[in-house]
């Protein structure tokens, strides 16, 4: 049995030979740069409250006959500056393994409070500065990001369901070799659920990454509803302080 599994893996790798493994790893690393992280904070923290989160997951790709989420990891520290404003900073640990520092500095503000539990959601907006620099040539890039979230509590409970839309902005007009950069907005809708306890929170999120961009021009087979976009699955574990 074990030998059979081993042979299957060996055969899969043989099929992936040529440049496929290179491209697979390239995609694994690179897509973490392009809005493949989960939503950091949806609900503002109370003033003075602190949280530390571990995020795991990514876009779903086909690998060795299985659909698997790319195992990106990142860490987030958040601080409730006021009851309406939360500050946070994230570090992409997977990207770091490959000598590139990807950090996010963000704010989350509450823009609508329904004051009661019902069908009307709380609405928050998150501004994020994605800053990347590499330790090879010390190139630095900045991508701004704007997310809007709506979340609903279940009566008096702390658990909540949320929907949102994330957008990365690419300001560059050209790519390598003076080719035109055609996409400037990278919109990704998402939905998630947070189970909230006294000290811990657990979130499961689904994200439909760039549903209007073709997923066909890629060596790596991406899981999606059609020929555009990529499905992503994420798990967040948060410790409250």
């Amino acid at each position: 049995m074990i030998q059979c599994i081993f042979n299957n893996v060996k055969n899969s790798l043989k099929i992936l030979n040529n440049m496929k493994i290179f491209y697979l790893l390239l995609t694994v690393i690179i897509v973490t740069l392009s809005s493949c992280a989960p939503t950091r904070i949806v609900k503002p923290l109370k003033k003075g409250e602190k949280t530390a989160s571990f995020h795991f997951g990514g876009p779903i790709i086909r690998y060795s006959n299985f659909n698997i989420p790319v195992p990106f990891t990142s860490l987030t520290y958040a601080y409730g500056f006021t009851n309406e404003l939360t500050l946070f900073n994230s570090l992409h640990t997977t990207t770091l393994l490959y000598k590139t520092v990807h950090t996010e500095f963000g704010t989350l503000i509450n823009i609508y409070d329904p004051k009661c539990y019902g069908y009307r959601p709380w609405i928050t907006i998150s501004h994020v500065a994605n800053i990347l620099f590499d330790t090879r040539k010390y190139n630095v890039k900045y991508w701004p990001q704007l997310d809007i979230n709506a979340y609903w509590h279940y009566k008096q409970k702390d658990n909540y369901f949320y929907l949102g839309l994330s957008n990365w902005f690419e300001f560059a007009s050209h790519k390598a070799h003076e080719e035109r950069q055609t996409d400037h907005y990278f919109l990704s809708p998402y939905a998630g659920h947070t189970f909230s306890g006294k000290k811990m929170e657990y979130t499961l999120e689904f994200k439909y990454l760039t549903p209007y961009i073709s997923n066909q021009l890629s060596v790596v087979e991406k899981n999606s509803f059609g020929k555009k976009g990529v499905n992503g699955i994420y798990i967040n574990i948060t410790r409250k302080f």
Binding site: L33, K137, H174
Partner: peptide, 14 residues
């Protein structure tokens, strides 16, 4: 790198 990223990413990032 840019084929994989869609974004204008420097090669030295990876």
């Amino acid at each position: 790198v840019q084929d994989a990223a869609e974004l204008s990413v420097p090669a030295s990032f990876v």
